[in-house]
């Protein structure tokens, strides 16, 4: 089963829920894979002791122009939708950071003057936590804009190479746009994490709209449940959205988090809140 952990608003506790849920499932003897898909700011690894096994360098293909073959006809420039390849007089120059790697310029060139070279966009690392949770992390290079490409690469690698797990947990980036869609579109179930504040509710509504558009089964986990007002609870009730668990706003939990602590280890009393998710999703 594939579970994506997402939220409209950032900082609501996706990482907390993902890491603790992975820990709980492992404790119950399931084979668990946790993939940190928040590739712009991945943090799941902070909460585990990980023995890293492998690094993969995902890339996109960008054009390289052979000046001896290029006649300066400008067909590549006309074809490119991103202004990433520009012909001026006899010269053709490439702007790698504007290139989306679609390959059209190579196809459009009548002189066969363009070949494609690899441009690394980040890193995919994998290993095992001390609890033997299979762990993956994607990390986007600073200055790169191809967040979605990196997530596609990460999930494709997992699909092709990691077939023997009971649970696949995907910790998604925040928001409701393309990187989030990429992370959630192949999940069987989506766990939305939010908080009962006006910001939390506003962003949850957008996330719910997104998931309904994708036609996915989902539920909500309410973090910092003791702050804010009743609007979130009323909304979930009115919309018939299942609340799978909640954690109170607590300085102790926040402090433990700040040091990279897992709630299930530091505060066993909250185990029952995670067990509710567990009973909902177990095979």
């Amino acid at each position: 089963m594939k579970i994506a952990i997402a939220s409209g608003k950032g900082g609501t506790g996706k990482t907390t829920i993902s890491t603790n849920l992975a820990y709980l499932l492992k404790e119950n003897n399931y084979r668990v894979l946790l993939a940190d898909c928040d590739v712009e700011e991945p943090n799941d690894d902070i909460f585990f002791n990980i023995e890293w096994k492998e690094n993969i360098e995902p890339f996109i293909l960008i054009p390289e122009v052979d000046p001896n073959k290029c006649t300066g006809c400008g067909e590549c420039t006309k074809a490119c939708q991103y202004h990433a390849i520009v012909n001026i007089g006899k010269k053709t120059i490439v702007f790698p950071e504007l290139c989306h790697g679609c390959g059209l310029c190579t196809y459009a060139c009548p002189e066969d003057a363009i070949r494609e070279v690899k441009r690394p966009i980040g890193k995919i690392s994998n290993g095992y936590t001390a609890e033997n949770i299979r762990f993956f992390k994607g990390l986007l290079n600073i200055g790169e804009t191809v967040t979605t490409s990196l997530i596609t690469n990460l999930l494709k690698y997992i699909d092709e190479n990691e077939k023997n797990y009971d649970f696949y947990l995907y910790d998604s980036p925040p928001g409701t746009s393309c990187p989030v869609i990429e992370t959630t579109k192949n999940a069987d179930y989506i766990l939305l994490v939010t908080e009962p504040t006006p910001f939390g509710l506003n962003d949850l509504k957008m996330a719910v709209e997104m998931i309904r558009k994708l036609g996915k089964d989902f539920g909500v986990f309410v973090n910092k449940s003791t702050i804010g007002n009743d609007d979130l609870w009323n909304y979930c009730k009115a919309e018939n959205i299942e609340i799978l668990g909640q954690l109170p706003n607590s300085r102790e939990i926040a402090t433990s988090y700040s040091n990279g602590g897992l709630i299930l280890k530091d505060f066993p009393a909250y185990r029952k809140e995670f067990l509710k998710i567990y009973s909902k999703i177990k095979v």
């Binding site: 991103y82 202004h83 990433a84 520009v86 504007l98 804009t145």
Partner: peptide, 13 residues
């Protein structure tokens, strides 16, 4: 969006 510097530079050329 992106690539405006490239586009304007090329238009001026």
């Amino acid at each position: 969006g992106g690539g405006v510097g490239v586009k304007v530079g090329q238009d001026l050329a």
